[in-house]
Design a protein around this nucleic acid. Structure first.
Lengths: 192, 192
DNA sequence: TTACCAGCGTTTACGCTGTTAACGAAACAG
DNA sequence: CTGTTTCGTTAACAGCGTAAACGCTGGTAA
């Protein structure tokens, strides 16, 4: 009934997630809501703004994947949990991942708030890495560079899978990503 | 004058590379060539086919980055050269990289020939990895998984940079990617 | 030479897109 | 009761990818 804006969001989210960013038109969203196409413009500046809202939701979902990992006891478990969660997000929420990270060709410009949140999350990861170094689990080197390295590996792996460059056997990919995490971390370890 | 098809290709390539995939329209290409929009259809099935040609060119360019690396003497140098070339390609040909890898949301379906070429290149990398293992430089494990891991790291790093998640200081990124390669390889080494 | 025909570019037009403008009904403020 | 704001409507516009029909132009067959 009421709160048309929320209903537009919801319908748009459904369409974007089920059909990807192309093929979703203002008129189809409007039709789904049961309203005229131009009514949408009372609640959103333009199509881009709707898309941004969905991306926000995607990043929130990513956050909800990452959060539990931080509750582990030691920093090494937390870090492994973060990487694992990132990969699971890519596997289980491919559409969100696409929307958030497969920007159609232009540089993504996150709204201030999300930008901030994103950097905060990154910093959290850097912290775990630094702690691992202090604890003598990782060799001591630049924790930021190290974190970027881990992030790259995780992000790249999901990316290659999203581009179905790795075959479509989910089982196999699941194993692949376990061994990849291992390999990625191995090079950081302090020699015993 | 003649060979309109080539001129369309060239103009389209210029537009796609200078403005990215969006904002390039059939009418603008046609205008650039000095011909009516529908004339293009005598030479290309549709817009997608033009884009595919440009992507082909992009992958050819990637190939030209990778090829010299294979002329090094030992497999370890060849492998490092391959990774380095991949990263340089991402840095120096960002628009090609976007076109080839930032598929707007749908799974990329390469034409047969390119698919084959791409897999062949991957196999070549796997070979170097396997040789490194035989030579006792890398510890012996699944060379395919190992190659995917290296590829992921390189691809992810470029990806994050393309999404300007890593700042825009080219100098810094240049250093970052050197240390990332090192870190990625470190974990593969046979303990001395 | 004449008749034809295929190749290639043109103009016109269709259905789709995102978006703006003008309008009207309801809800609310003084 | 009146004036204004809110929120939806319909109509319309410019731009998109593309199809269809037309006409020129050069080469081949009779």
């Amino acid at each position: 009934m009421s709160d048309l804006k929320a209903r537009i969001s919801l319908t748009a989210q459904g369409l974007f997630l089920s059909e990807g960013v192309e093929g979703v038109t203002m008129r189809r969203i409007a039709e789904g809501v049961g309203v005229s196409a131009t009514a949408i413009y009372r609640h959103f500046r333009d199509k881009e703004e709707i898309l941004e809202e969905i991306i926000d939701a995607g990043l929130a979902s990513l956050s909800s994947y990452l959060r539990p990992a931080l509750e582990a006891k030691d920093p090494f478990q937390r870090l492994k949990g973060l990487i694992d969660a990132y990969l699971r997000f890519g596997l289980e929420q491919p559409r969100y991942f696409d929307l958030a990270f497969l920007v159609p060709g232009r540089v993504m410009h996150l709204p201030e708030e999300l930008e901030h949140h994103s950097r905060a999350t990154f910093k959290l990861a850097v912290q775990q890495v630094a702690l691992c170094m202090e604890a003598g689990i990782f060799r001591k080197e630049d924790p930021i560079e190290t974190t970027v390295y881990l992030w790259s590996t995780a992000h790249g792996l999901v990316m290659l899978q999203r581009m179905n460059r790795l075959g479509d056997d989910k089982e196999k990919f699941s194993r692949l990503y376990k061994t990849t995490i291992e390999r990625a971390i191995r090079g950081l370890r302090e020699k015993a």
